[in-house]
Simulated scan of single mutants.
Amino acid sequence: MNDYNLSDKYTENSCACEKCQQMCKKTPCMGTPEEILRIAKAGFGDKLFPTTWLVGFYQGILDKPVDMVAPKMTNKGCAFQDEQGLCILHSLGLKPLEGRMTDNHGITIINTIEEALRTPVYVAATEWAKRDFDVMKRKIFRNTKA
């Protein structure tokens, strides 16, 4: 059992192969509000930004877009990728839920909305949807230098 309603299909993954690194170059991983707050408190608030996640809304799975704070993207990929393409958060124990639990080496078949809601990305998004975004945003950026 995990802390969230995450499907048992997902397990922690620390792979750093080229395929996994490419995922981070295309889009940063999504974390729960608590994970993003821990990243900010560790001094990385300047690598985070407020955004709106629309995928679940466009897919008809969620009833509205979800406001959240996520890692920034640079012209090279996720702001947390180092020169070797590795996540600097991983060794610090701060890697967000989607990055820890995503496996790029197989295909996970999702047949129902209920299954979709138990994937790492939807679990993170629904955790954000449960929170007051403005309160979380203030907490996250409270000590961040502009």
Rank of each mutant, 00 (worst) to 15 (best):
T11S: 12
K25L: 03
N75T: 02
L89I: 04
K76I: 09
R118E: 06
V135Y: 08
I36C: 02
L86I: 12
G45R: 08
T119S: 05
K137S: 01
N111A: 15
K72S: 05
E12P: 11
W128C: 05
C78T: 03
Y4V: 01
P65T: 13
V66F: 11
I88L: 02
T32V: 09
I107N: 00
R138D: 11
T112I: 13
M23N: 05
E12I: 14
R131D: 04
L94Y: 12
P33I: 13
K19Q: 04
F80H: 05
C87T: 04
E18Y: 03
L6D: 11
S7R: 07
L89E: 03
K145W: 05
I39E: 06
P65G: 14
S91R: 05
W128F: 06
G77W: 11
L62K: 11
K26H: 05
M1F: 15
G85Q: 09
M30G: 00
M1G: 13
F44Q: 10
D132A: 06
L97F: 08
N5V: 00
K95N: 09
G56T: 01
N5P: 01
R118G: 00
K145Q: 03
D3M: 03
H90M: 15
D8A: 12
G85P: 14
M68A: 15
H105W: 00
Y10R: 04
F141W: 10
A40I: 11
A79I: 14
C87K: 04
K19R: 14
E35R: 07
M101V: 10
G99A: 11
G60W: 04
C78M: 14
K72V: 00
K19V: 09
M68F: 12
K41A: 01
N143C: 05
C20T: 01
T144P: 02
R131Y: 07
T32D: 01
C24F: 12
T51C: 10
K76L: 08
A129G: 00
M23F: 10
K130P: 05
K76A: 07
I36P: 00
H105A: 01
N75L: 03
K137E: 07
N143I: 01
A70T: 14
F80Q: 06
Y58C: 01
D134Y: 00
K9R: 05
D67K: 12
L92G: 04
P28C: 02
V55P: 03
C15P: 11
E115W: 04
K72Y: 01
V55N: 07
I109M: 12
D103S: 08
G99I: 07
L94A: 09
D46V: 13
D132E: 15
K47H: 06
F141G: 01
H105C: 06
K41P: 01
L89P: 03
F133R: 02
Y122M: 15
T102C: 06
T119W: 04
E127H: 09
M30A: 01
F80V: 13
Y4K: 03
M23A: 06
V123D: 00
